[in-house]
Design a protein around this nucleic acid. Structure first.
Lengths: 336, 336
DNA sequence: TTGAAAGCGCTAACAC
DNA sequence: GTGTTAGCGCTTTCAA
């Protein structure tokens, strides 16, 4: 039904060969300016658009990059995507976004789809369910450039961009301590995610630096990262049921932070009187929240930009790149 | 660098022709089961994946659909996208998302890119800056299936899916009236958007049904739909500066609603004492807001699903479709 | 039952 | 300065 104009149509109409038309359109030096003008004018007139699919097939690159995130509805990721697009469009690359919804299975499907669909490279933030990364490893070994951001896989040797999760967590926890809280719980997502590990480590470090003993019962995991309300609710309820109930909580994720506030609201737990809270979040409506949330904000836009720059470097490298880097960007603590 | 396995590799390794391999893989009846097994086993072993780009080129369809929205960070759109994906994946279609950031120019670029990139159809919600829709019209006339959702263009004769914006606006405005407010302002985005027109109409109808005279000075437009804080702020300030200041405001958009709350907060306008507010929003953290927001929620997920079903019907139609439909789904009023 | 060859839209050697 | 041709990966007549 949908029949775009091809180079052949132009050639036929103008009594030229396809190669001449092709060269004229690409402004090659060997074509007479008269022909060039003829061709370009006619092309514009009938609305010719080169077929990128044919081009991809020929050149074995698509000038597009794939992005794998858990959810675009997450402020952190939507900001990162804006950063990614800002660089990619500038360099003539198109961005294809795919969501895993924190599902390992979906991640495998999406990654393979993107790869076989001919993206030139991949920007990946792992789903919370992912621990086996062989789907990425095999593509990477075949030479597909991959850059990780946020939730990275150390197993794969490539460029990575993350926020300073440990320091962010350290600062947030320290802030709670400085505010007088001593029994600080930690609510985090899947235990094998790099961000969980880093944030947990910052939390522990803050406690130990302030001579507060770590209570393992205070650490709760929500493998779905706040996607399932009941999971968050259960974790919170367990914390509240402890004989030595915590008086504050440091939350390690965006969705978890808001989920946590919802649970407290529904359970009529007063924040911060009954329970103080600080958490990672990139939401831009936090100022409207009440009770308010002290938040650790990541430079999501910049992370997206840097990751994209790194990926394009890998894609456009003439020779296989051997030197990789892990960029760590500072977080910001917003005390509310 | 990235060298996927091709049908040719299999053919060479197995001493067969490419066509035999192709047919074996596609399980054609003419191939002996011995050969089929040989081929499929080997294909699996070396991890053969058909190249969809070559397929697209040949079959002139890509089994992918393009989605054009203003922003994925908007709850309404991210929910709609989830609905779109739920149907599309089921039917074997991949979804390519693109953002206009409410820019007409970006919309034109994205639409053309998606079309030339070979999507089989387009799901479009217009940017707030778009009034000229010739970029869509010309593609549509060439036979590219397009379905509009949310912000539709009546000029183009095709399927459309929207929420009952007029009724939603009517209910929200009526609620404010029932709560005792009489001087109700209306903050909306670009005046030419279908949703603006419909919501304005609901607002007017509610006023007239309750014998409240319309005050044109009470209607304020923010062409960027809340993307620019200053724009919203200016509009609000103008309302507040009126001699006959409004006592309530009905807001016609997601970002505008939260933007409005932010402005009031920053101007120390007490909600709802100084100014009551009701607005369209699909955010799922509204319950955490204080002051709280009475909201009109659209069935975004369902809208996405329905639009996708309609688009796939158009795409897969054997004969040109002549009958089009405009589906209107109910909104929900959440009184807070 | 299998192979050879053409063609999808485009570019790039290689002619002329 | 322009035309001819091959080939990117795949499917599909047409032959064998």
């Amino acid at each position: 039904m949908f029949e775009p104009v091809t180079i052949k149509d132009i050639a036929k109409a103008l009594g030229l060969s396809t190669s001449t038309v092709s060269r004229a359109l690409r402004d090659t030096y060997e074509i007479s300016s008269a022909t060039k003008k003829l061709v370009t004018d006619y092309a514009k007139q009938i609305g010719y658009k080169p077929n990128p699919i044919a081009l991809s097939l020929k050149e074995r690159r698509s000038k597009s990059i794939g992005v794998v995130v858990s959810e675009v509805a997450n402020s952190y990721f939507s900001q990162a995507i804006d950063g990614i697009e800002s660089i990619a469009y500038d360099k003539g690359y198109h961005v294809i976004i795919s969501q895993t919804h924190e599902s390992y299975e979906r991640e495998v499907i999406n990654v393979n789809h993107l790869a076989s669909r001919g993206v030139d490279g991949l920007l990946v933030s792992l789903s919370s369910q992912t621990s086996d990364i062989s789907h990425l490893k095999s593509l990477h070994e075949k030479g597909l450039p991959i850059v990780f951001f946020d939730r990275v896989a150390d197993e794969i040797v490539t460029d990575k961009v993350i926020a300073d999760n440990e320091k962010g967590a350290y600062n947030a926890t320290s802030h709670l301590i400085a505010s007088g809280y001593k029994k600080i719980a930690h609510l985090t997502s899947s235990s094998h995610l790099s961000i969980s590990i880093e944030r947990l480590s910052g939390y522990k470090k803050a406690l130990s630096d302030h001579n507060i003993e770590l209570n393992e019962a205070y650490i709760k995991y929500c493998p779905h990262g706040g996607m399932i309300y009941e999971e968050t609710e259960t974790a919170i309820k367990e914390l509240l049921a402890l004989k030595d109930k915590p008086d504050a909580i440091f939350v390690a994720g965006d969705r978890l932070s808001t989920g946590c506030l919802s649970v407290f609201k529904n359970l009529s737990v007063k924040v911060p009187d009954d329970m103080a809270i600080a958490g990672f979040s990139n939401s831009d409506v936090l100022d409207l929240f009440n009770p308010s949330l002290t938040s650790v904000r990541q430079p999501a836009y910049e992370i997206g930009q840097q990751a994209t720059e790194m990926l394009l470097r890998l894609i456009e490298a003439k020779y296989p790149v051997e030197e990789f880097e892990k960029k760590v960007l500072d977080t910001n603590l917003f005390i509310r």
